[in-house]
Computed example of a mutant assay.
Amino acid sequence: MLMPALALGAGFAGYIARLTRTTVLDVLSQDYIRTARAKGLKESTILLKHALLNSVTPIVSVMGPLTAGLVTGSFVIEFIFSIPGMGNYFITAVTNRDYPLIMGVTLVYAVLIVLANIAVDLLYVKLDPRVKLSGERA
């Protein structure tokens, strides 16, 4: 299971690492980081509590589309590594023109992607106090 996991996750892990680095470097140039250093806070406290916490929102925002990439990438990984799963059944259904199975698997994956995007939106509201749900008052 190590090879399929690495094949599926390595590209996404690199993208998240690059995005994390970029956003942390952007946050480290902000005024409140300079103020925290001027107060004499430890560098580890500045990085963890101020920089990383404030740079996590763009990373969480990207998780929804990355989930779609993982789901669609699992089709190929399951087929290449001969792993029995929904992606393998989907590919078999396409080659056999089994339209009800194609529609069913597509619907299941669409629901998974929608649920992942809803979870990302709710997590974004939790992480950033400036963002409110449409029913909440300011």
Rank of each mutant, 00 (worst) to 15 (best):
G135I: 09
A51I: 07
V56E: 03
I80G: 04
E136N: 12
L6A: 02
A119K: 11
R34V: 14
V114S: 03
T57A: 08
L48H: 12
A116C: 13
I59T: 02
T95A: 05
R34S: 10
L6D: 00
T106H: 03
D128F: 03
E78I: 09
G11M: 10
V114N: 05
I118N: 05
V108T: 11
I46H: 01
P58R: 12
A13C: 13
R130E: 08
V56F: 05
L115H: 04
Y124F: 13
F12V: 04
D128E: 10
V111Q: 01
L101V: 15
L107H: 02
F79A: 11
L115I: 15
S55M: 06
E78K: 03
S74T: 15
S82K: 04
T72Y: 07
G14M: 12
H50E: 13
K42F: 09
E43I: 15
I77N: 04
F79K: 08
A110D: 09
G87Y: 01
A68T: 14
V120N: 03
T106M: 10
Y109I: 12
T22S: 14
S74C: 02
S55I: 11
L47C: 10
V111P: 00
D31H: 11
A38D: 08
G9R: 01
I33S: 03
M63Q: 11
M63S: 15
Y99H: 13
D121P: 00
S44C: 08
I102F: 12
L19A: 11
L52A: 05
L47N: 09
S82N: 13
P129R: 14
D98L: 08
E136Y: 13
Q30G: 03
A93H: 10
N88W: 09
G73K: 00
D121G: 07
T23K: 06
G9D: 01
I113C: 05
V111K: 01
Q30D: 08
L112A: 10
A51F: 02
S44M: 15
Y99G: 06
V76E: 01
A51P: 04
G11V: 13
V120W: 02
V131Q: 12
V60C: 01
L53I: 09
S82M: 13
L41I: 09
S82R: 15
F90H: 00
V62C: 01
L127K: 05
S134H: 13
G135E: 06
N96E: 03
V114T: 14
L112D: 04
I33H: 02
L53P: 00
A17I: 15
G11K: 11
N96S: 10
I113H: 01
V108L: 09
T35C: 02
G64P: 07
L70G: 10
V108P: 06
T20V: 12
S44N: 15
L53M: 07
F12K: 05
L25K: 07
L53T: 14
T57Y: 01
G104R: 13
A110Q: 12
R137C: 02
G11W: 03
V71D: 01
Q30W: 06
F75Q: 03
